[in-house]
Design a binder for these strands. Structure first.
Lengths: 137, 137
DNA sequence: TTTAGAATTGGAATCATTCTAATTAAAAGC
DNA sequence: GCTTTTAATTAGAATGATTCCAATTCTAAA
């Protein structure tokens, strides 16, 4: 997808670029910091508006756990996540969720399923080995 | 588990009772409203402190999605959730997550797994059928 | 070039949650 | 049963993420 061909304002382009160039999982605040390097005048509100717009357009993904700030994701395909209970590190995971499991979830809930995600919580390698002592996001 | 035998303060007892008697998934605010009916003088801070304490003791469960307020759960056993993308309704789901899937998640992430949860997003029956037009928590 | 609608801006407002300092209650020691 | 120490509670202030609002600026079309 060429970023120019999307008919986006330059602010929205900048925000999209930041996320596309990121390692993934940036907070709105981090996006703002990056975006203003490209577009010094951009406002916080516009970053939020742009993120919402881009999410609704399906150009970026959004993910949020607990109370932590929402994170934005360049990855658009279905995937899963592992979250470290010690340091809050968040990584992507590509799992094959069996169809039978999705079907079971839909049947049991009565919901019309749009997506499923598996969340693993545990200790990341660094925290498990004691290398990482930080508690951070 | 007898609530009296836990050596809890009366505030913590009250908070625990509220959650045990709830249908599940109350916010801290809702817990506060209920708890003060039993214990009119209880403060907001104490409700939060108690919730944290009870969670750490493993007496209640905690769950949070997106930006919404954290919810507290009387259910302590592993279970899954379905969330309505239209009205934010949240229901419990009891699925059998295959061991192989948990193992795959742990291996791929390198995390020492503590828990896994499947989250289904979609339309709840009411929203799917158009009965429910609300957007609420 | 005028106009209408959309996007952007800065700042205020909101909401959940946490922190702080002071007070109170409970437990332990004598 | 009193004193000391420790933990819990309280009220309110502080924080942080997010949303809202009113005013301004763009953009695209007529």
């Amino acid at each position: 997808m060429d970023i120019k061909s999307l008919g986006l304002t330059k602010q929205r382009q900048a925000v999209l670029m930041v996320i596309r160039e990121s390692e993934g999982h940036m907070t709105a605040n981090e996006v703002f910091e990056e975006a203003r390097r490209e577009l010094p005048g951009i406002s916080f509100a516009t970053v939020y508006n742009s993120l919402r717009y881009l999410k609704n357009e399906g150009l970026i993904g959004e993910l949020g756990f607990g109370t932590d700030a929402i994170r934005y994701d360049r990855k658009l395909t279905r995937h899963d996540h592992a979250i470290c209970t010690k340091c809050d590190r968040l990584i992507d995971l590509d799992l094959k969720i069996p169809d039978a499991l999705v079907k079971e979830a839909a049947t049991n809930s009565g919901f019309a399923a749009e997506s499923v995600e598996l969340v693993l919580r545990g200790s990341c390698p660094d925290c498990a080995s004691g290398i990482n002592l930080n508690k951070g996001k």
